[in-house]
Design a protein around this nucleic acid. Structure first.
Lengths: 189, 189, 189, 189
DNA sequence: AATGAATGAGAGTTCATTCAT
DNA sequence: AATGAATGAACTCTCATTCAT
């Protein structure tokens, strides 16, 4: 197993631990154990717990950003994006959980705050671009403020990472209403 | 200082600690220290850390629910509610932080999950009721699905507890768009 | 409840706790709780835990010595004594447990050691006296060394306070053999 | 120092602590300190205090059982055994103290009770075997009930672990009487 | 590149004791 | 005579980190 593979394996294990137990329950020994290496080996790859966490941040950002990349024909992109984020959170709830953990942690970690802000801003711009394309393509009303709508879309999708809020079908209701207001249709369940 | 006051003081100190450092950084000794009592005194009031946390949950729920109580004339209630939640999160960001911490923790704590679900459901019903009133009063379009709209309102407001998402004015943009779609006006900054 | 009664109640509760959990598990709060008084009240009667233990020592010695008092006709006294100790340990195993705890503790507590030594010596003398009476009455062989026989009787009876040793019928076997060697008969089960 | 040596050192230190202060006074930090390691190191070898105690139980049983192993010519074995136990308790009073502590603790620990019972039963059978050999060799009266005599021998020897009982020469007196009744001679002091 | 062994600092919890009332 | 409230000291146990090999 190459040096890089091992690093990756450790980061993924840490990622899963955070998803499952939160930062509150993250234990380096547990991470090392899941990869099947000694705790000292973990420290060979990551001198401190903080360094390992930085690795998790990178992984989370990468995974999340790769979901944002617009795909398919321009007309379908907005629909696709909403669908993609929705599917992502359904199929990989760990990513949502980790993103939420990171969002909370960023309140205490300026460095992380910067990264999270960059990612959110990038997401916001991406959605705004999709909205503008859709307006241009005549699929959305031209008087729509793409900045504000992008904000409410990001907000709505984000709230889905908090199970306590999104539960009992409320996530789907919110998405359905988004579709109504946008005058477009995409599956919500 | 009465027994109840001291209990309250401890819970409030724990509340603040969680807001500031997250569950990750909650230390009973720190909580006791902030109230100016010995760690053993904390355990006199709360046999375990978990019991103290339950006290924090109660406090958070109480604080949050008290914000929900509809006030003023029926026609203004929806506007008032959005304004109130917005002001709450601006003036007491700790409550938002704690609520988000609890939302995340509820994924690992079935008991807490139940409480959080109840509170969210109550909030959802409250907003739905306000929407119905507004529809009845002719202030909102009659074809509006009050369940779905309530969901997106709750989702949007909830996302404001995650600073990483709500930053850079995006919270206000989302609220502004909400107002546009609802066809009502309320201050957003 | 008189001051003395309360003292007695506390000592008895402590006695029972020691019998049940050993000195290892003796907790003043538990003792107070069993009597239904506050822990501070216990300290009103006994300034320290050590003082309470001294009370237990007194109680145990008193209970034990009262068993030793020879009763009945002189000819039957030895038989009676063995029977009495045996019954005592069967009916009040707590006393045996406490005596054993005290015997062990006396290795670390010179004061207690003195008390235990006095009690054992008194017991030894008592048995020796009974043996001499029996010899004089022609009930035992005249060449018997009453000091040595008293020692083995005390030793055998003492070993019965250690359940790990006396179990599986071995206590009764030992007593039966004692009777054989003494040429007397008394019930062993 | 090998891993096994360190384990042994810790167990021995715990053994000595128990002998000196009883379970009541057993402190993991003290044990670690005596071996010259950090308390965390102790927990590296023994996850819990209970696990360390299990180590002490094993050591005590091993030490005790090794004393029981019959040695020398068949005719001398009984004599040797009594002499060996007597010397053991004289030269290593810690073992007697620990055995007595374990005997008491077994009343509250079913697992330990099983182990103690097994050891006592093994001891009893060993002594009984020696008695039968001696009878067969014509050294003891043939009408002797080896089971009952074994019981009183075990009881007498056991009582010697309680200094409060065995003191003032009574242990030797009891042993001397045993020799008289058995019709054999062995040194008692 | 990897690990077994070790540790300092600190975690939550317990307990005998104190003191104002 | 009795107690609720409070505490210092100590307990077992945990954890990220280090280091010799």
């Amino acid at each position: 197993m190459s040096k890089d593979d091992r690093r990756q394996a450790l980061v993924r294990a840490a990622f899963n631990e955070i998803a499952e137990r939160g930062f509150e329950g993250l234990r380096t020994r547990e991470v090392a154990g899941e990869v099947g290496v000694n705790i000292a080996t973990l420290h060979y790859y990551f001198p401190t717990k903080e360094a390992l966490i930085r690795g998790v941040v990178e992984l989370a950002m990468e995974r999340f950003r790769s979901t944002l990349a617009p795909r398919g024909s321009s007309a379908e992109q907005l629909r696709d994006h909403l669908r993609a984020v929705r599917r992502l959170l359904a199929e990989e709830p760990e990513l949502g959980a980790v993103m939420a953990e990171l969002a909370l942690r960023s309140a205490r970690d300026p460095n992380l705050a910067r990264i999270m802000e960059e990612t959110t801003a990038y997401w916001h711009r991406t959605v705004r671009g999709l909205l503008r394309n859709a307006v241009r393509a005549g699929e959305l009303r031209p008087d729509l403020d793409s900045d504000d709508v992008a904000a409410i879309i990001v907000a709505t999708l984000t709230s889905m990472t908090l199970p306590a809020v999104a539960g009992a079908g409320r996530a789907d209701q919110a998405l359905r209403q988004l579709q109504v207001w946008l005058g477009m249709s995409f599956p919500t369940n």
